[in-house]
């Protein structure tokens, strides 16, 4: 199989302005991936499927990943003007403005995103995997990604599952409904910040985590009764 860099070059030759980036995978598996621009994803996917040298006709796996908002603390050196008292001539004190370099920690929040990951193989040429990724703009309101179901039917149920559990809205999906949870369900349970319903009432258990939740439940219930 071609390397990811070669595939990237092939894509860019075929789909102008596709904006593909290579995401390296440092683990021993060395399954590197390509990040697609959502706007061109469908064209790139169709190219990957139909190109005779690549022929990725088999979409194996579709999944979502939740990347939380990250608070990044950075140490930056800033120059500030500080007023200093210096000893002037003849014992007087003088106020003087000097430049000083101080270190400051700045925090900024890197917005998280939801990511859809696709694993492609080729049945015709028996190679793979090629990993494709797409990211949403954020985790709250701009969560649309193009659906690849028109290219690979295999994505149909799996994209529905990602929609159900992560809340990525796949535009162009023929039948985007909840698949695993019931229709009235409101949350997206696989997101990292999902809070489970509190139903650990009475738990004779050996699991510490469960026991802790049950105790929390009890103390809450007690509080509400007092």
């Amino acid at each position: 199989m071609k390397t990811v860099e070669e595939i990237k070059a092939a894509i860019e030759a075929a789909v102008p302005g596709a904006g593909v980036t290579v995401v390296l995978n440092p683990s021993p598996s060395a399954q590197h991936s390509l990040r697609l621009e959502p706007a061109h994803a469908l064209a790139v996917a169709a190219f990957l499927r139909d190109d005779p040298e690549l022929a990725f006709d088999y979409l194996s796996n579709v999944t979502g990943v939740d990347w939380l908002d990250k608070e990044i603390a950075e140490k930056v050196k800033v120059t500030r003007q500080v007023t200093k008292t210096v000893d002037g001539p003849e014992g007087t004190k003088l106020e003087q403005v000097v430049d000083e370099i101080v270190e400051e920690t700045r925090k900024h929040v890197e917005p998280g995103s939801l990511e859809a990951v696709y694993h492609l193989y080729s049945v015709a040429l028996r190679h793979g995997p090629l990993v494709l990724r797409m990211r949403t703009v954020n985790r709250t309101d701009k969560v649309e990604l193009p659906s690849l179901t028109p290219v690979w039917r295999a994505a149909e149920l799996q994209e529905r599952e990602v929609f159900d559990l992560y809340g990525i809205v796949f535009t162009g999906h023929p039948d985007l409904r909840r698949i695993l949870m019931w229709d009235e369900f409101k949350d997206y349970p696989m997101r990292k910040d999902y809070v489970e319903p509190d139903d650990y009432e009475y738990e004779p258990t050996a699991h510490d985590a469960v026991l802790k939740r049950a105790q929390e439940h009890r103390s809450r219930e007690q509080g509400s009764r007092d």
């Binding site: 009235e184 369900f185 409101k186 949350d187 319903p197 139903d199 009432e201 009475y202 007690q222 009764r225």
Partner: peptide
Amino acid sequence: EQGAHDLEPPSNQGVWPVEIQGV
């Protein structure tokens, strides 16, 4: 019933009389 976050009610008190300690 299947509610927005959980089953409603979470248990049937008639058959699942939960003893809550201290209450």
